[in-house]
């Protein structure tokens, strides 16, 4: 083991498309949860008023559907970028199939989830892009939101005139009816909320502990790695 200095180098991790995706996703999810909760259980707002002059519930649903479209297209854009972008954005990072990623996964589970203080710290354990546990959680999240999109558009399909929502019409007979599909759509929302809590907490935890710019990386795109790590790689390449 080399002696560790406290000198860092700046790496460009998240490209502009990744960051745009992240924040569009963030806004869309907040909008979808807020409007979705209102759809699920509308509060008795303005109940004294006449129907003629208000349409707030219709507007709320409109925002939900519009945000649903943005959310979906944004996801398509991210999938596309996983074939175009840099190595941290690549689709491969989401699958824990390589030995390296599995090793990293066990490291993260021990060190960051179970909070053990491990003796043998090696650079390869410290992730630059997503760590293996995080990226795997995004894979599960991806499946979850695909289900959310499928159930959402299936419910929407009946009123749609465009072919795109109709692509999902088969979901309703698959689950036997709208009622169950709506309940699933509602339950998946809670998984999305739980994912978000864990996600935000862990980002803050890593930022606090490691001081490598975890939180700000999603704004500016940069993270920091130890100088030695870059030097070793240089030596290897020479």
């Amino acid at each position: 083991m080399t002696t560790i200095s406290h000198e860092y180098k700046r790496v460009f991790v998240w490209e502009v498309p990744v960051r745009i995706f992240h924040w569009v996703n963030f806004i869309a999810i907040i909008a979808l949860i807020a409007t979705g909760i209102l759809i699920g259980n509308p509060p008795a707002l303005m109940s004294g008023a006449e129907a003629t002059n208000q349409y707030w519930f219709g507007i709320n649903r409109f925002i939900h559907f519009a945000a649903g479209y943005i959310f979906t297209l944004n996801l398509v854009y991210r999938v596309f970028w996983s074939f175009m972008g840099n190595k941290y954005a690549n689709w491969k990072v989401f699958f824990p199939f390589s030995k390296k990623r599995r090793k990293n996964m066990s490291h993260v589970l021990k060190s960051d989830i179970l909070l053990q203080n491990l003796k043998n710290s090696s650079f390869s354990n410290i992730s630059v892009g997503h760590n293996a546990v995080a990226s795997f959680s995004y894979l599960i999240f991806f499946i979850l939101i695909l289900l959310q999109i499928a159930t959402g558009f299936a419910l929407y399909a009946d009123n749609a005139t465009w072919w795109f929502p109709k692509l999902f019409a088969w979901v309703i007979p698959l689950f036997g009816g709208d009622a169950l599909v709506r309940l699933m759509h509602h339950i998946i929302m809670w998984f999305v909320i739980i994912f978000s809590i864990v996600h935000i907490y862990l980002v803050m935890y890593h930022d606090w502990l490691e001081g490598r710019g975890e939180v700000s990386s999603m704004f500016g795109g940069f993270k920091f790695v130890r100088k030695e790590r870059v030097d070793i790689k240089k030596e290897l390449n020479d």
Binding site: M46, W56, F57, D158
Partner: peptide, 18 residues
């Protein structure tokens, strides 16, 4: 069609009057 989409109370739904 859903009952909801041909319901004469639908304007109240859209107005949020429940």
């Amino acid at each position: 069609k859903r009952v909801h989409d041909s319901c004469y109370r639908r304007p109240y739904f859209d107005a949020g009057l429940f």
